[in-house]
Simulated scan of single mutants.
Amino acid sequence: MKYNPMDMMVAWMKVASSYNMMMLSAAEVIARRTMMMASGAMTAPEAMGMVMEKATIYATASERAAVAAANGADPARITAAALKPYSTKTQSNVRKLRS
């Protein structure tokens, strides 16, 4: 399948932008959770959720990437499909930890 180079460039720029926003959110989540652990304020459910969310998000991201690939999506869209669950979760964690 042939892709228009400009369309691909735009698609990869969107992926890069989403990735950067996700990484900023993840850094804030890590900082806030580290402060909670250091001060003894982290609850057991928060600690367990912190561990369990990794496997859940990985499975969801893998599934979305596989579905996108099976539907013939281009590499940028497959990557975006895999990135979306991580972005959603990190943004959710930031909102929860800020309150």
Rank of each mutant, 00 (worst) to 15 (best):
A82W: 05
V51W: 12
A41M: 08
T90L: 05
A61R: 01
Y58N: 15
A47E: 07
A70T: 13
A61W: 01
V67A: 12
T90V: 08
E28A: 06
V67T: 11
E63V: 11
A73N: 01
M8V: 13
A47T: 09
L24G: 03
M52G: 14
T56K: 09
I30E: 03
T43E: 07
S99I: 10
A41H: 05
E28Q: 15
L24F: 07
R98N: 07
P85Q: 10
M37T: 06
A68P: 03
V94Y: 01
T79M: 14
A26H: 02
E53Q: 11
S99M: 12
Y86I: 04
V10C: 05
M50P: 05
M13K: 10
A69V: 12
A82I: 09
M1L: 10
S99V: 09
V51E: 06
L24A: 13
A11L: 11
M1A: 12
D74R: 01
A65F: 05
A82H: 02
S87Y: 07
R98K: 13
D74Y: 03
M8L: 15
W12F: 15
T43Q: 05
I57W: 07
T79E: 10
V51I: 14
A55Y: 04
V94D: 00
M42N: 09
A80N: 05
K96A: 12
D74I: 02
R98Q: 02
T88P: 09
V94R: 00
Y58D: 15
K84Y: 11
G49H: 05
M21H: 09
R95S: 03
M48W: 11
I78C: 07
A47D: 01
S62K: 12
Y58E: 13
A73M: 04
S25T: 05
M42L: 13
R77C: 11
R77Y: 08
R95F: 01
A82K: 02
W12P: 02
N93K: 00
A55C: 07
K89T: 00
R32N: 01
M6K: 15
M48Y: 12
A73F: 01
T43R: 02
M36I: 00
S17C: 10
A31N: 07
E63D: 15
D74W: 02
M42S: 08
A76H: 03
K96C: 07
T88R: 13
P75D: 11
Q91W: 00
S25R: 07
K84N: 15
A11N: 11
I30V: 12
A31C: 06
D7K: 03
M13H: 12
T60L: 14
K14Y: 05
R98M: 06
S39V: 06
R32G: 00
M37V: 13
M35R: 08
A70F: 10
R32Q: 04
M6I: 10
P75T: 12
M6L: 15
M22F: 06
A70H: 09
